[in-house]
Every structure is written in C-alpha cells, then in structure tokens.
Simulated scan of single mutants.
Amino acid sequence: MDNNVSEFISKQEKWSHELQLLREMVLSCGLEETFKWRAPCYTIKGKNVVILGAFKDFCCLSFFKGVLLKDSEGILKQQGENTQSGRIVPFTDTAEIHRLKPVIKAYVFEAIEVEKSGQKVEFNTPDELELPDELEVAFQQDAEFQNAFQSLTPGRQKGYMLFFSGAKQSATRTSRIEKYRSRIFDGKGLHDCVCGHSKKMPSCDGSHKYL
C-alpha cells in the first residue's frame, strides 16, 4: 500500500470509510497502488486502470477506459456530457459499496483485461490526437473545466494537447495543465494575448513584457 494514499484517505472528512472499502476492493483484484494527480490510482504493469475520487456530494471509482466496458449492470455514469473515455460509479454510503462488491470486482477485472488487450478509446479530438491521461483525469475531476476546453476552437484544443503531451514526465504534463487552466476558462489559446495590449490580436506579440 502507498503511504500517500493512506494519508489521503485519512484526511477525508466525509468519505474516508467508503474510500477505504473501495481501496481494499481494487487491491484484492491484483492492481498496483500509486498516488497520481492528487488521488489514489491503480495500475497494471504501469497502465492506469481505475482511480478513486472524492467530491462534495459523492465519492467514486472511476474507470479510465470505462466507455469500453460492457456495463451489463448499468452502473457506469458519464461525468460531464463531453467525457469520452472515463466512466464513474458514484457512492454515498458504505452499504451501497458492500451491496455492489461482486459487480464492482467484475468490472475491475474486465477493465484489467481491456488494458491488457491494448484496446484504445477512439477520441473525438482535433486531428484525432490522443487525449493525455492527465487531461482526461482533469476532466473527470472538473466537468466545468472540460466544458471550457471543449468550447475552444479545434485549433486551440490541438495546440494545448500538443503542448501538454510534449512533456515526457506525467508530473510536468499535470503542471502544464494546472498552469493554463485559467487561460482555458477564459477561452484563450496557448499563444493568445491575455494582457490586451497586443497589436496582433488575438495572438500575443510580447507587449506584456514592456508593461
């Protein structure tokens, strides 16, 4: 078990018992535990399978490639109308988790097989660029951020995805996403002017350097 995950769960005022149950459940499926994107993440041979989330109204088990699961029990939810790959199972009490334990484990095993098979999600993105895992997680954690990103022009979306994906380390990709979050909410592209003084609007001409 990862100590960062233990600390994360112990600090949860509302969902600590539910998250601990989900943690034990996914670990019993043979997944490896790590701490990514400020959340407990579970992998198979380094590939992301599921991640735990804690929100105001619910906690959840989120499947990175949930859209590829059969969902025979109809429990998977799309978090935000623009979410393409991830699907969540939300919970509000421990009884609900206990009741669905066999189903949840079956879904986790199916997700493991999906990852082992190398199946890919067909993302609807500019020029069919693959969405970075870190950006998909950011979307799962903040539907408003996803809507803001999807509202950008295809060219602006492409610019950000190339920039985010260009970083070799996951931590750097996450840092870039967080750094440009406010710019995306403002509807600005990677190289758009944000100071309002550019003479080549909407592009930045470096005028901000002389303010």
Rank of each mutant, 00 (worst) to 15 (best):
K101V: 06
A138C: 01
R23N: 08
I75F: 15
D57H: 11
V67D: 07
G86M: 14
E7I: 10
C59Y: 04
R176G: 05
D205I: 12
T43D: 05
F149K: 00
K70H: 13
D71A: 05
T94Y: 03
I9K: 02
S207G: 14
W37Y: 14
T43E: 15
E13Y: 03
Q169K: 13
E24C: 01
N4P: 10
F185W: 06
G196Y: 08
P102L: 04
K209S: 14
R173H: 04
L135F: 04
K77A: 07
D133V: 10
F149D: 03
K14H: 13
E130V: 10
A39W: 00
S28T: 09
K179W: 09
G46C: 08
T92Y: 09
G187H: 01
D133A: 09
F64A: 09
G155V: 05
G166V: 14
K36W: 14
T83K: 01
S10E: 15
R38P: 04
M25Q: 10
I51R: 01
G118Q: 08
D57G: 06
D127H: 13
H191C: 04
H197M: 13
G166L: 07
N48V: 06
M25V: 05
L68E: 11
G46Y: 00
R99G: 03
F145Q: 05
E115F: 06
T83R: 05
K158M: 13
S165N: 15
P126K: 02
K70E: 13
K77H: 04
G53E: 12
C60A: 15
K199G: 14
A143V: 11
F35G: 08
S16C: 11
N147E: 14
P40E: 14
K101R: 15
R156H: 14
W37K: 05
A171Y: 08
E13Q: 13
S198I: 06
Q150V: 13
I177M: 02
E144I: 02
G30Q: 10
E115I: 14
Y107L: 04
F8V: 12
D192Q: 01
C59V: 12
Q141M: 12
G155A: 11
L22V: 10
K36P: 03
T172I: 08
G189F: 10
S203W: 11
L131E: 15
G187W: 04
W37C: 09
F123W: 06
F149I: 03
L21Y: 04
F163H: 15
A167P: 00
